[in-house]
Amino acid sequence: MILNLKNSWWKYLCVILVIYTVLAGLLVPSPRLPILNETIRNLYFHVPMWFCMTVLLLISAVHSALYLGKANIKNDLYAVEAANTGVFMGVLGLLTGSLWAKFTWGTFWTSDPKLNAAAVGELIYIAYIILRGSFTDEQQRARIGAIFNLFAFPIFISIIYILPRLTDSLHPGNGGNPAFSQYDLDSRMRLVFYPAVIGFILLGVWFTQLRVRLRLIENKLEH
């Protein structure tokens, strides 16, 4: 029921917030810092992608749990489409992050715990999608996919959010590095960052809802 948002007010909100993020994110003055310079604006785009991915994967895990409880095929559709959109957001997060790394660390990719964890997280969910593809029976696919999804989600959280904090990492917010919140002295950045997070999460939910509706129509046409 989590995604059963029939009203459209949140879609207007989403459009407004994303447009605001793009405009304000590129135009509002940003703190002048050495090395970071203007790349600090990437905070408005890169970080919300990962928040959005995490929220979507959480939605996916909740729907998998619901599926195991009630065996409603609609829950399975939500679980898989939320995971698909989550993986897509993760790819965008990797791309924006690697662009940022090129201009601050001097390289697109470096062997850093946080970066590797992000790549492994993508692999886990691609394995989930491949696993689902190996079943022909719809019920079996949904049930076993749900079990793998629930097994994978806590591990995903531990590698993305817990383990990189315990080791040495270049990534802001990890390995003793300060996160961006310490840089924005006058909280100007928060005025763009929080709306950006909400806007992109709503966008991800919207994508998922559209994909699920498409799948439901396809199912109806098949039967």
């Binding site: 964890a117 394995a127 076993i144």
Partner: peptide, 30 residues
């Protein structure tokens, strides 16, 4: 658990590998 899942999916050994290797990486790193 992964082998139980793989056994339901027709004992596909490459499936076993792609599911278990990413999941074991956090443990392996530590």
């Amino acid at each position: 658990l992964i082998s139980a899942i793989a056994s339901k999916a027709g004992n596909n050994s490459s499936l076993m590998a792609i599911m278990s290797i990413p999941l074991i990486i956090p443990l392996l790193l530590v």
